[in-house]
Nucleic acid binder design. Sequence first.
DNA 1: GCACTCACG
DNA 2: GACGTACGTGAGTGCC
Length: 938
Amino acid sequence: MSEQKHLYLVDGSAYIFRAYHRLPPLTNIHGEPVGAVYGYTTMLWKLADDLHQADGPTHMAVVLDKSSQSFRNEIYDLYKANRPEPPEDLRPQFPMIRDATRAFSLPMIEEDNVEADDMIASYAKAACAAGWDVTIVSSDKDLMQLVEPCVDMFDTMKNERIRAEEVIGKFGVGPEKVGDVLALMGDSVDNVPGVPGVGPKTATKLIQEFGDLESVLAAAPDMKPSKMRDNLIEHADKARLSKVLVTLKEDCPLPIPIEDMKLGAIPEEPLAAFLQHHGFNSLLKRIGQVANTAAANKAIAGNPKATSKGDGAASAPVAGKAALPPAMPPIDVNAYECVTTVDRLDHWISRAMETGLVAFDTETDSLEAVTARLVGFSLAVAPGEACYVPLGHGGTDLLAENPEQIPFAEALARLKLLLVEPSILKIGQNLKYDISVLAQHGLTIAPYDDTMVMSFALDAGDHGHGMDELARLHLGHECISYKSVTGTGKSQIGFAEVPLSDATKYAAEDADVTLRLWHHLKLRLSPDKVTTVYELVDRPLVPVLSKMECTGIKVDRAVLARLSGEFAAQMESLEKEIHELAGQPFTIGSPQQLGNILFEKMGHKGGKKGKSGQYSTDVTVLEDLAGQGVEIARKVLDWRQLAKLKSTYTDSLQEQINPKTGRVHTSYSLVGAQTGRLSSTDPNLQNIPIRTEMGRQIRDAFVAEPGNVILSADYSQIELRLAAHFADVAPLRDAFEKGEDIHARTAQEMFGEVNRDTRGRAKTINFSILYGISRWGLAKRLESTPDEAQALIDAYFKRFPGISNYIQETLATVRECGHSTTLFGRKTWFPRIKSANQAERQGSERAAINAPIQGTSADIIKRAMVRMGPALEAAGLPHVKMLLQVHDELVFELPEGDVAAASKVIEAVMADAAEPLVKLTVPLGVEIGTGTSWGAAH
DNA sequence: GCACTCACG
DNA sequence: GACGTACGTGAGTGCC
C-alpha cells in the first residue's frame, strides 16, 4: 500500500502573533506570560493528532523566522522598518515556541538571511516536485501565492482550508496573480510601498483588467486622466520594487531533506516535561490517551519500565522530571540600581552571600584587557535583581574624588572580598576578560563559571556564543547594544563618558542576562554529557590563558624594523621590473588589475573564476604560469610574499608592542574554533611565518629577556598519532611505538619501497586522510589524475582498513546524533550534515571526519596547559612562564639555568596530558628546542 | 562589508 | 550530466 505523502509546513512565526492577539493573556504556574505558547502547543497537538487521518500529515516541520533581517533589507533598507517591537509580554514567548517545537520532537527550520515565508515556499516547491501534497499551516496572505493543485493552506483558527477557490474569493485573482496585486496595493505593516492610493480593491480591478503588473504599468499612460493614473506612472518603480519584495524565494537550500520530516509517534519525553514545566495540566493528562503519543504505544506494548521502581536514588534520570530552568520575571532595565554608596554595595554583597551566586561583569574603556581601565562593574544576584557600580565615570584620574561614586580603592577592597569568597560562585560571560582587567589591581576570582565557555561545550558548531546571541536564543531577549550606549564612529564616546543612568541599564542588564543564561546552560551540562570537557578542559583554562595574555612575549622592534626596510627595498625593485614586463604601471596588490594585465593585456592563458567574474590570480595560478616560464608571474609571487610579510608581520607587529611592557599581548579565544582549538587575535600569534626562509626570520624578533631563553615544545605528528589510535591501525601504531619516520613507514606499507618520491606521496596521503579525502583534491596535490589518486586511496584503505571503518563509523554517528565527539567528550555539531545541498553536505562530512582528531588534539594540549603551572611550581620552577600556544606547540620563557629541569617537566606534562581520563594506544612524542629567540628555539 | 589572498597548525 | 572538491583559523588589501 503506497501512501500519498503529505507535508505540513507550520508557519510558526506568524502563528504566535495571531495567537497572542486572539487568546487571553494566560500565565503559567511561574507567572510567565504563555498565552501564545499555549495556543501554539494546542495547535501542534491537533495537527499531529491528524496523522493517518485522510488528508492529514505524514510529514511535518515548523518554520520560524531566525532574525528580523533578510536579503530583502539589502534590496530595500526600509523593508519592515515600521514594524513595531513585539509587545513586552510576547517577547519571552519566542524561545518558548522553540521549546514547544522541540517538545513535540518536530524538525525546526530557521535560516539566516531569508524569511520563514521563503523557506516555506522552497519546501513547498520541493515537496510538490517530488509528487507530494503540501499544506501550509498559516493564513498569511503573502503565502497565498503558493497555492496550486498540490499545495493548499490551512487556517487552524478558522479551521478552514484555503485552495485556489478561496484565494480567488479573497483577491479576485488566482494564486499566480496574487503577487501582482500585493505589489500594487503595498503593505503598510511590512512597509512594502506599493502605489499610493491603490488599495486592495483597485489593485484587484487593475490586475483583472490588464493581467499583470507590467501590463498595468504599461497601460497607465493611456488611462483616462486621474490621480490614479499619475500615481501609477510616477510610482512605477515603487511597484516594481514591491513586486520583488513580495515575491517569495523558492530556491533556498533546504537544510533538512523533506524525507527526514516524517511524522511518527510523538515521544512522551520531552513533551511531558515541557507541559509539566508550564503547568499545562489538561494537556498533560491527555498524554497516553492520544493514539499518537509514544506513551499510548508503550502502554499497548506493556513496557516494563513504564512505572517507577520507587526508590530511584541511584537509577537513571526519571522521566517527566527533565530539568528546566527556573521561571524568571521579564527583563526590566529600569529596575536596576546604580550603586553610589558603600552601604548599598555592602547590601548587594550580602545578598550574594545569601544566594551563593553572583553574576559579575566589568566595564572598561577598551577591548584590550591588558591595558583597559576599569570604569565600573555590575552584579546580579537573582534574575531581575542587578546593579551597576560606577567607579571611573566622568574623569580619568582614578584617585579623584567623585561625589557620585564610591572611592575606587574602597569599592575594590569590597569587590575583592566578594570575588575570592569560596562560598559564592562567580558567573561571567567571557570571564577571561574580567580576570585580565582585574589582575591589574591584584584581584583574582574563585570559584567561577563562564557562560560563554559553557555554551561552547554544549553547542559548538550550532551557533555563536556571544551574549547578545545567547540572550536572543535562550531568553528571547534583545540586549541593549554597546553602540547604542556609546554611539559609533567619530562621535563614539568611551564607557567612562556614558551617563550613569544609561550605563546602569546596559551594564546591569549584562549581569542579569549572564545570570539567567547560567540557569539555562548549567542544567544542560550533565544531561548533555559535556561536564568533563567543561570542568576538566575548558573552564580551568580560562585563568591560564588570562595569565599568558598578560605576560605577553617580548618582541625586538629593531629586528622587525630592519626586516621591514629590507622587504621594502626588495619590493621596490620587483615593482619596477613587474611594471616593465607589463608595459605599464598598475597596482600589483589588486587582483583585479593584475588579472586584467596577465590575461587580457599580456594574453596569458588562465580562465575566469567565481561569481564575481574576476580572473583568479592566486598562488596556484601564478605558480602554473611561472612553471610555463612566464617571468612576471614569478616576480608577482615574490612581491606578494614580501607584501604579506611586511604588512601583516614586520610593520603591524611593531605597532602591537605594548609601550608599557615592551611585549606583545595576543588575545586567545576559547570559542573561536568549532573543533575546540584556540584561536588568537590582536595580533594572531598562531600564524607567524615559518615555512619559508624569508618569513622565518620574523621569528627571530620574538626574544627572551636577558638571562632567559625561549623554549619551544611541540607534539610530533599528534594528529596522525590520534588517527592511528582512533582507527586502530596496527602498522602505524607500531611505527609510532618504535619512533620510526611515519611517512616512510606509510610509503613502505603502500608502495613496498621508500624513496623520496614514495615518502612524499605517502605524506600527502596521510594528511589527506585527516581532512576527509577526495580523489580530486588528492590528485591536485599530487599533481596526478583523479584516477591515479583514487587508486592510491583504494590502496591506502585496503592496507589500513581501520581508517576506512573509522570514517564510515564517524559519519554514521554524526548523521544519527548530529554531532561528533572527541575522546574527552567534546562535541562539535554539524547541522548541515543532512543538507539536501550536496556541496554543503559533503563539506560537513569532511569537517566531521576531521573534528574528532583535531578536537582531541586540542583537548590534550589544553589539559597539558592546565597542568603545566602547578607541575612547574611543584618542581620548584616558578620562573618558567608559558607564553604562547600554537595548536601543537607551547612556547615558554625561562631562566637559562632552568632549561634542563624545565624540559623534563614540560615533556612529561605534555606526553602524559591525556592520562588518566583517556588511555591512548599510541605514545605522544614531544620535541623540545631552546634558543635566545623563537626562531632559534626551533 | 565582501572577495581575494595568504600566513599558520 | 555538470559542479567543485581537504580540515581549522585571522589579517591586510582593494573595491563597491
